[in-house]
Design a protein around this nucleic acid. Structure first.
Length: 289
DNA sequence: TGGCAGGGGTTGA
DNA sequence: TCAACCCCTGCC
């Protein structure tokens, strides 16, 4: 791991890492692209600007350790790929997304962002995240804002959240923020629970169902086997693995298939399939719905 | 320019 | 199992 300061810029080795792909893979919604082809954002409370130069990251703000941890540069990607099922869909997805990593996100920010994501496209999730930060978050550095903590959102009123574009998600986020601020739910305690129990605890929260619980397990609690099934993954699975089935599987059945078929790093497999699917022509999915 | 369909899900009946 | 929930974006 190399580090070298120059005008505040430092570098760190980042072999087999695709920064742009990771940013665009639907797990992060608050990084702003910069003119130099990089990104500016916050890692929890630390303002960071980062860009990729070959197999290295050039960054300012934060430390090499912080970036390595956040971007999960310690995950053994080649070994993870080796656990994936050897089928055409998976091979194509890995070839397309090589270097994509599942980031270690702060739990509250991850949970709150995914509560706002229901029935929304990436561009709008990004807009809601920005609006919430700017309205309720603490300002940091050069125009950046922290994600508002549960206590801050708990003290907001629903109308203010709706003004951030949340629509019917506003009361859900508000209630969940209150539960956490009041100590009725402890996200760090959930982190320590086994997968099944953690999922059940998350699903108690208003606005959290199986899909969002699986996203939090995967993106915040590093449960790399967790397998969120959203409409994109459902499309992929139906298209590649259930095309000949007469009876269309339910979401629950698709989830069970995903957990079983994709192995110990199912969450990684899911992320590669998702990222690949979203970048295929729309006509690919015309028949699968 | 305006109108309309539909979207990365949850929930309650 | 299914409609309702907000509202913004993209498309015609």
């Amino acid at each position: 791991m190399k580090k070298k300061a120059q005008n505040g810029w430092k570098t760190v080795d980042a072999p087999l890492f695709d920064l742009r792909g990771t940013m665009a893979s639907g797990q992060l919604f608050h990084w702003e692209p910069t003119e130099g082809g990089g990104f500016r954002g916050l890692i929890d409370t630390t303002e960071v600007e980062v860009r990729q130069e070959g197999e290295r990251l050039r960054f300012r703000g934060g430390s090499a350790e912080l970036l390595c941890h956040y971007f999960a540069l310690d995950h053994p990607l080649e070994a993870i790929y080796a656990t994936f099922p050897d089928d055409p869909a998976m091979r194509e997805a890995v070839a397309f997304g090589r270097g994509l990593r599942i980031v270690r996100q702060p739990a509250w920010e991850c949970l709150a962002t995914f509560i706002t994501s229901a029935m929304k496209q990436v561009s709008h999730i990004t807009a809601m995240s920005r609006a919430l930060r700017e309205r309720f978050g603490e300002p940091i550095g050069h125009g950046g804002f922290r994600y508002p903590d549960p206590a801050r959102l708990a003290s907001a009123d629903e109308a203010a959240l709706r003004e951030c574009g949340l629509g019917f998600r506003a009361p859900k986020l508000l209630e969940t923020a209150r539960w956490i601020a009041e100590g009725r739910v402890d996200l760090e305690a959930i982190r320590a629970l086994p997968d099944g129990e953690a999922e059940r605890e998350l699903c108690r929260l208003p606005g959290v169902g199986p899909k969002i619980a699986h996203c939090v397990l995967l993106f915040a609690y590093e449960r790399v086997k967790a397998f969120p099934v959203d409409v994109w993954i459902a499309r992929v699975l139906l298209h590649h693995y259930f095309a000949r089935k007469r009876k269309k599987p339910t979401l629950k059945e698709l989830h069970a298939f995903g957990i079983h078929h994709f192995g110990p790093y199912g969450g990684y497999a899911q992320q590669y399939l998702f990222h690949h699917a979203r970048n295929l022509p729309r006509s690919t999915w015309a028949k699968t719905g």
